[in-house]
Computed example of a mutant assay.
Amino acid sequence: MDLSPDILTRGESAVLTLRQLYEGYGYRRYRIEKFEPYDLYRENRNFLNEETAITFPDSRGRLMALKPDVTMSIVKSYEPGAGSAKWHYAESVFRRGRGGDFREIRQIGIESLGGDPLYAQAEVLLLALRSLAVFSGDFVLALGHLGLLARALEGVPLTEAVLDCVRHRNLHDLMRLIGEERAQPLARLMRLPQEPVRALEAIREVFPDRGAEKELSELEDLCGVLEASGLGGRLRLDFSVVQGLDYYNGLFFQGFVNGLPRPVLSGGRYDNLLEKLGKPSAAVGFAVYLAELDALFRDGPRPVDIALIDECPDLRAVLGRVDAWVREGLRVRVCRTRAEAGGAASVRRIDAAGEIREEGRS
């Protein structure tokens, strides 16, 4: 029996569409174990967010962790000497939240390790935009650059307190922390026009003599590629979506879908993690948070095509008739009473003699 698209939920169909998209660009499926020794996460805690791993001892006394992160597992298995690697995954990770509650976080995403950094970033950004388009026609990818943020501050440490002001566009507290004059370049980055072309012009005006040509050229190249793809209108330059300093070292971005309160996609360039694990290479990727998209996938109860009220003692006759309908691609439910047939497109009855008659809709 062929797998008909209408058998899948909208969420399942979206995941399969994304997997096909990523496979088309040469990304291979990566599968992870649900748990592994905790040492990897203990030694790299600064690359995880504030949530902590869920741990337990195994039969040999080793401390194990339910997988709190996919990227770290992929990087652990990466061998730079073998060349570049491109992986996609659809996995759950498990974390302990701030309140101590356990969380399962369903993700689908890609990681591109090694290879040409500029091409990898362009490809990953394009796939991020196309991933968002799978879920909605009304979305935005907000893009920033940690290198430009650092240059805007001219040596002011990028502390979490400073970044928190940037994330919340809190100029008042930013000026209090670093002074009004030093905050001005960053304040201008926080007030960029929406259109990428005008935003790039405004960014160039912030850095006339700050040695930011490399970062500016990279950002302009990437925006140009996305504009040529036809998706430039969905791109916004927005430095308020800056993420972890320990994790990201250049490009960072988040994806938003209209009507949903939180980002549904997050990613960036994370060479720092590979450097920390002794595998110096360029690395960029993103994850789509499927739980954030659940509101788009609330499929109602799926109606059956035929509800068959069974009054026949001949089990073979009943099952044979049901099997024939199923082979035709119909959804069938056998029930004892008409009350159980609610929602069916057609209600039929098989009597004691094995005869079937139509009873209309439920």
Rank of each mutant, 00 (worst) to 15 (best):
S240K: 08
G250K: 06
L222H: 09
G233Q: 12
Y248N: 06
L219P: 03
Y247C: 02
V242W: 05
Q243L: 02
G230T: 10
E213G: 00
G232A: 05
D246K: 05
L245R: 13
D221L: 13
S229P: 11
L222W: 08
G233N: 15
V225C: 12
V225R: 10
R234K: 11
G244T: 03
L216W: 06
Y248P: 06
G250W: 00
G232P: 03
G244F: 10
S217L: 04
G244N: 12
D246I: 02
E220I: 01
L219S: 04
L222E: 06
A228M: 07
E215S: 10
V241T: 03
L231Q: 12
S240F: 12
V225L: 12
L231V: 08
D221E: 15
G244R: 15
V242Q: 09
L237H: 04
A212W: 13
L219T: 01
R234F: 07
D221T: 15
C223H: 01
L231F: 15
E220W: 01
S217Y: 02
V225H: 14
N249G: 06
Q243K: 11
L231P: 05
R236E: 12
G233E: 15
G230S: 13
G224M: 12
D221Q: 15
D238M: 09
E227V: 09
S229F: 10
Q243H: 06
E213D: 06
V241G: 00
G250L: 01
L222S: 08
G233A: 11
L226M: 12
G244H: 11
A212P: 14
L222P: 07
K214V: 01
G250R: 08
L222N: 06
G230C: 14
C223K: 00
S217Q: 04
L231S: 10
Y247R: 06
G233R: 14
L222I: 09
G224F: 13
V242C: 12
E218A: 11
R234I: 03
D238L: 09
G233D: 14
L245D: 09
K214F: 00
G232F: 01
G244A: 15
G232N: 04
G233C: 07
L222A: 05
D221Y: 10
L216Q: 07
S240L: 15
